[in-house]
Amino acid sequence: MKLLIHGRNLELTPALREYTQSKLERAIQHFEDMVKEADVHLSVARNPSVPQQTAEVTVFANGTVIRAQERSENLYASIDLVASKLCRQLRRYKERHSDHHHSPGHRASSTPTTEAVIDEAPIDGSLLDGKEAHLPSPGVRRKYFAMPPMSVEQARYQLDLIDHDFYLFREQESGQLQVIYRRNHGGYGVIQARD
């Protein structure tokens, strides 16, 4: 498994790096056949009056993104919590995709790896010719994702895996973009455009 560890507002000591690696390897050991890459971000809040230390892990399992994040007053405790949470999420993912959910003789189709999807065609010429560099406005971060069509139930499952409050997806039947979110009083809601 490829493990990338990044630190923000802290020095990544060899002891911290080794602790993080051992905890994540232990959390992922039963899922090594699925997990090929893990990206870890460790950070410490700049405000000394708020002792908040965060461990965030993003795992790429068979083309699916699984994310876990935990905060506490101690970075080592945050790493322990995020490793436990990640293990639970991987177990849930594996149970959902194991063969006992399908009729005999049928297997779930496997998601292609990133390398299989990337177009290997060479790039001719410069990508920068005739273009001017500009930075996005402060506070705006853009993310780009492939959005294969899916049902609301599949989107709910993805929302649980990424550990966010909402998930943007392309609805299977209509092809429209919709947002599924966790409601404050339990359950889920879906936001969709009115025709």
Rank of each mutant, 00 (worst) to 15 (best):
L12R: 00
P48S: 04
Q176H: 14
A193N: 15
D163N: 06
I123M: 12
K131E: 15
P104F: 07
R182D: 10
S110P: 14
I191R: 06
V40S: 02
T13S: 02
I28Y: 09
G130T: 08
Y157S: 03
L127Y: 08
S126C: 02
T111N: 15
Y93L: 11
I180G: 01
S137C: 12
V40C: 11
Q21C: 03
A27S: 01
Y181S: 13
A45K: 04
S72L: 06
L42V: 07
Y157P: 12
L42G: 06
G7V: 10
R183H: 08
P51W: 12
P112K: 00
L161K: 06
D99R: 09
H41S: 12
A121P: 08
P51Y: 06
T111P: 00
R17L: 00
E73Y: 10
Y188M: 00
V117K: 08
A108V: 12
I28G: 01
N9C: 05
D119N: 13
Y76E: 03
S103F: 14
R8I: 04
Q154D: 12
Y181P: 02
R8Y: 05
R46S: 13
I66R: 11
S126T: 08
K143C: 12
I28A: 05
R8T: 00
H106I: 13
A83Q: 03
A45W: 00
V59S: 01
A155T: 04
E173P: 10
I66G: 03
T58C: 05
I118V: 01
N74A: 01
E171W: 06
H30Y: 06
H164T: 04
P122C: 09
Y181H: 05
A133M: 11
N74W: 05
L128W: 09
L10E: 02
